[in-house]
Write a protein that binds this DNA or RNA. Structure first.
Lengths: 150, 150
DNA sequence: TTTTTATATATCGCACACGATACAATAAAA
DNA sequence: TTTTATTGTATCGTGTGCGATATATAAAAA
């Protein structure tokens, strides 16, 4: 092997790419019942935390651009999960609000994260190791964000 | 907050999703020079490791389905990075091989991973912490794979 | 040998991601 | 107050990911 740093197995990035795809896939069967996707679930979580947000709050919290979020919200509105109203104060802004249906999903989905976490632990990784992952990933995300912004 | 497990900040999955997107984004400026994308880079790495592979080897190593990989390879062929030839032995199979152009990229890109790693470390995460991430992610991927396959 | 089953890859449709650009409304400057 | 710059969101084009299905070839069974 000429350049070991070009070997797939040596790369952290490939692990992140794979882990992210697989964990999203493991959520999918739970979402299917409610007809939503993983990014839509992220938006719902934000709105359950606090309703009636403007789009820029959502893009910032999710680290996504408007060219991803706007169509995502349009689909969610069409599905009856949210409404997108122009702001009175500043008509450039859109206020995103949960519908009754969107609100009801919170109660229905409350067990999904713990249920999935339990399954993962049952398949050979300890809670301790999962806990360790979180702060390192936070630091990693922070460092990468700095790299990307200069 | 009714259900803390539904809070974005408490979720490992969201961190993985974000970390994967951001690290791919940090690769992009390097790729732009060569006109490739991150998944295309993954395929190239596999072929630099060993050339003339059948598609199923690629889908297995990348944990992707043929409905992702086939169009990816078709685009790469159109760009002149690889060729897709039918196998003599079993004409269902396609042999994927690097072109001269595809081969030359290895030498040109050999410094990219280390260069990026250095930048990340310079922005506030230690090599030690990066090292710790790899084996835990391996275990995580293994566990999630088991979850998804039953 | 004909039929059935399995394997390897391809196609289709839809939902993201994201670079690039457009547009409308507000804020700031002249 | 008119002009200019900024902000918030939307649109467009391309490349993934992935569920579902199709197709062609090979292997196994009848």
């Amino acid at each position: 092997m000429a350049f070991p740093q070009l070997k797939l197995d040596n790369q952290l990035c490939f692990r992140l790419y794979t882990a992210a795809r697989l964990v999203t896939a493991s959520y999918t069967p739970y979402f299917k019942e409610f007809g939503i996707t993983y990014p839509q679930y992220l938006v719902l979580m934000l709105l359950w935390e606090q309703d009636n947000r403007i789009i820029s709050e959502i893009t910032e919290r999710l680290n996504l651009e408007t060219n991803t979020v706007t169509p995502l919200l349009q689909r969610m509105e069409k599905q009856g999960l949210i409404v997108r109203q122009k702001s009175q104060a500043d008509s450039r802004q859109r206020i995103i609000s949960l519908t009754g249906e969107g609100k009801r999903l919170e109660e229905k989905m409350k067990n999904v994260p713990n249920c999935l976490a339990q399954k993962i632990v049952d398949n050979g990784i300890s809670v301790d190791e999962l806990q360790k992952l979180m702060p390192i990933l936070d630091k990693f995300i922070c460092a990468i964000t700095n790299v990307n912004n200069r």
